[in-house]
Simulated scan of single mutants.
Amino acid sequence: MFRWILPAAAVAGALVLSACGGDAESTAPATTEATETSATAETTTEESAAPSESASAGAAELTPQGTALAMGEKAVVPFHASGEKGLVGVTITKIDKGAPADLAPLKLGARADGYTPYYIRITVSNESGTDFAGSSIVTLDGLLADGSDAGGVYSVPSSFTPCGKGSAGDDFVTAGTTYETCSLALAPEGTEVTGVAYDIDTYDDAAPAGAKADYAAEPITWK
């Protein structure tokens, strides 16, 4: 299924177009736990404290709510997938302007008239070494020059050549591995997509204990 949503500036109420299929999302960050064999009770006690220290370090690495980043800078956010929880990195590498004709395969028809597609290129990295194989982050929102949300086409198939949604491979199970994905934003005539917002609250429950990750209230932004 894909959903098509007009920019708020263009209409008083958002229009949603539904078709078959669905956004395959399994997203979940998880903190890994390292345990070494100990010969003494004292060593065991020290090692049993290690996971909580690791969790604290993870919390410190989380990108604060409301952070403004430049293109190419990475945000570290909570994530969960298939029951696993941890952290992923989200880097907006660039925003490419497309042509209205590009949208033809999505069959939006006249409802896409007057809109120009913009392709938000994203690199996702595994920050916590969690098994997130096969997962994908949700679609990110484009921002117009005045800071308002652009329209978006969600659940874009991977077969959409200009901006197919990517997902993690089988190797996305260790810290440092990455995959590429893309979000499709729509700008009304006379405007352009100049920024991106991470305003997702889907993964709040995966944030390290004590960390604030209400990005719906205070988005991370790139410009």
Rank of each mutant, 00 (worst) to 15 (best):
Ser158Ala: 15
Cys182Gly: 02
Thr35Met: 13
Gly114Ile: 03
Cys182Phe: 03
Ser183Asp: 02
Ile137Ser: 05
Pro51Gly: 09
Ala217Cys: 04
Ala185Tyr: 01
Ala101Ser: 14
Gly129Trp: 00
Gly142Arg: 01
Pro117Cys: 02
Ser148Gly: 09
Ala41Leu: 14
Glu47Ser: 12
Ser148Cys: 08
Gly210Phe: 07
Thr37Ser: 11
Pro29Ile: 13
Thr191Tyr: 06
Ser135Gly: 15
Leu140Thr: 02
Ala19Tyr: 12
Ala50Ser: 13
Thr63Ile: 02
Gly22Ile: 13
Ala30Asn: 12
Ile92Tyr: 08
Ser135Pro: 08
Thr174Gly: 10
Asp149Gln: 11
Tyr203Ala: 11
Asp199Gly: 09
Val76Leu: 12
Ser82Thr: 11
Val156Glu: 02
Glu218Pro: 01
Thr93Arg: 07
Ala145Met: 09
Ala70Met: 08
Lys94Trp: 11
Ser167Arg: 05
Lys223Pro: 11
Val77Arg: 04
Glu84Ser: 12
Gly98Gln: 00
Pro162Leu: 00
Pro162Ala: 00
Ser128Arg: 06
Ile122Trp: 10
Ala70His: 09
Tyr115Cys: 03
Ala145Asp: 08
Gly72Trp: 06
Ala99Ser: 12
Pro105Ala: 05
Ala168Asn: 00
Trp4Ile: 12
Ala150Thr: 00
Gly176Phe: 02
Ala50Tyr: 15
His80Ile: 09
Ala10Asp: 15
Glu46Asp: 15
Asp171Met: 08
Met71Glu: 07
Thr123Asp: 06
Ala9Ser: 15
Ala30Cys: 14
Ala34Tyr: 13
Gly86Asn: 05
Ala217Asp: 04
Ala50Cys: 11
Thr221Trp: 08
Lys165Tyr: 07
Leu87Trp: 05
Ile120Pro: 06
Asp199Glu: 10
Asn126Glu: 03
Thr91Phe: 09
Thr178Ser: 05
Ala39Trp: 11
Ala150Gly: 04
Ala150Asp: 02
Ile120Met: 03
Ile120Cys: 01
Gly72Arg: 04
Ile5Gln: 15
Asp102Tyr: 04
Thr221Glu: 05
Ser155Arg: 10
Asp204Trp: 09
Ala28Met: 12
Thr139Glu: 13
Ala197His: 06
Thr44Ser: 15
Pro188Ile: 00
Ala207Leu: 05
Ser128Lys: 08
Val153Phe: 02
Asp149His: 12
Ala49His: 11
Ser82Met: 11
Phe172Trp: 01
Glu218Asp: 11
Ser48Cys: 12
Gly21Met: 07
Phe79Glu: 10
Cys163Leu: 05
Leu144Ser: 06
Thr67Asp: 00
Glu42His: 12
Glu61Trp: 10
Val90Thr: 06
Glu218Tyr: 07
Arg3Val: 15
Ser54Glu: 14
